[in-house]
């Protein structure tokens, strides 16, 4: 952290040159300083992820060695990378099954959540109706309500209905608008599309649904990708709810399988890190595939107010 403050100091002192020439030079110094800062901080940001990877390739005993080795090697099993840590018995961490289960939850959530969020976002952005302000306030208000608050009542309701050890309590909420934040995001985005497009469609005789599908949706593609990814990440990582609603091992998801692995084999540290690595790989893959749209998507959402 001390590195960061130092850099800021430089920034404060650096300006104050006069003339065009020195202005350019100041700018260059700024760019160099920014770049160095970014490189150092991003290395720190990646450190914990690297640490998982490093530890996943070591012998369980080497993980605790003092001094710790930065590269995945130890004194007991020197140099050799223990790739066999990744050969985890399916009875302990059933990667493919957990992957399938996680997708079984996340994919419907993404589809339902995104489509209902689009429909709600459209209504809030474009249509006039009674009670709009009130409903929108309720919607934005729910964004401020921590989901943890409704955890216990919802849990009791689902168990009373008898839907336990099933994915329904995890999926069904996403049929309901896919989260206020996503509705809000899409509404903001739809508002940036010129209204003339809608009106042209209306003149052509298109109904509201047709307008939404053929005009609005194609023009908010990047926002849709953003929302899909956000829903994917939320559902994929939602440990607390999965912990509560999923019981049997064959229904475990990736994060749940990982927690269970900690619980049962917290002794097998190398295996634990290998399992952690396996858990984050699908997340990373999806993100890397979508990140180009993703960051740009939010940047272009025009998150103004």
């Amino acid at each position: 952290m001390s590195g960061i403050t130092n850099q800021t100091d430089i920034k404060i002192k650096a300006p104050g040159f006069g003339g065009l020439q020195s202005k350019k030079r100041t700018k260059m110094i700024f760019d160099i300083v920014s770049f160095t800062c970014i490189v150092i901080i991003s290395a720190l940001v990646l450190l914990p992820i690297y640490w998982i990877f490093r530890s996943s390739l070591m012998g369980s005993l080497d993980i605790f060695l003092w001094p710790p080795s930065f590269l995945p090697m130890g004194t007991i099993n020197p140099v050799e990378w223990q790739w066999e840590n990744y050969i985890i018995r399916p009875t302990s961490y059933d990667f493919w099954r957990y992957l399938g289960n996680s997708l079984t939850i996340s994919v419907p959530c993404v589809i339902f959540g995104t489509s209902t969020a689009i429909s709600c976002g459209y209504a809030f952005a474009r249509l006039q109706f009674r009670g709009k302000r009130f409903l929108f306030a309720l919607c934005v208000g729910s964004m401020l309500m921590p989901a943890a608050v409704t955890l216990v009542p919802l849990y009791m309701a689902w168990t009373a209905i008898g839907v336990v050890d099933s994915y329904l309590p995890l999926i069904l909420p996403f049929l309901c608008g896919g989260g206020a934040f996503n509705i809000f995001l899409l509404r903001q985005f739809i508002r940036t599309i010129p209204k003339e497009l809608d009106e042209a469609a209306k003149i052509d005789g298109a109904g509201y649904f047709r307008t939404l599908v053929s005009i609005i949706v194609p023009s908010i593609k990047s926002a849709i990708i953003v929302v899909s990814l956000l829903i994917f990440i939320t559902t994929w990582n939602d440990l607390l709810q999965q912990l509560i609603y999923i019981h049997s091992r064959e229904n475990y998801t990736m994060v749940l399988g990982l927690t269970a692995f900690f619980g049962t084999f917290k002794a097998d540290f190398a295996g634990m890190f290998a399992a952690t690595m396996l858990t984050i790989i699908p997340c990373l893959t999806i993100y890397i595939l979508g990140q180009r749209y993703f960051v740009e998507g939010i940047v272009m959402t025009g998150m103004k107010n």
Partner: peptide, 26 residues
């Protein structure tokens, strides 16, 4: 337009009532 808006908002209605405000009251 109103009718269309309400139809589009059914999911939000459901979500806000069933999984947000009703559990809060509960």
């Amino acid at each position: 337009e109103q009718r269309a808006a309400y139809v589009f908002l059914i999911p939000a209605f459901l979500g806000l009532s069933l999984i947000t405000y009703l559990p809060l009251l509960a």
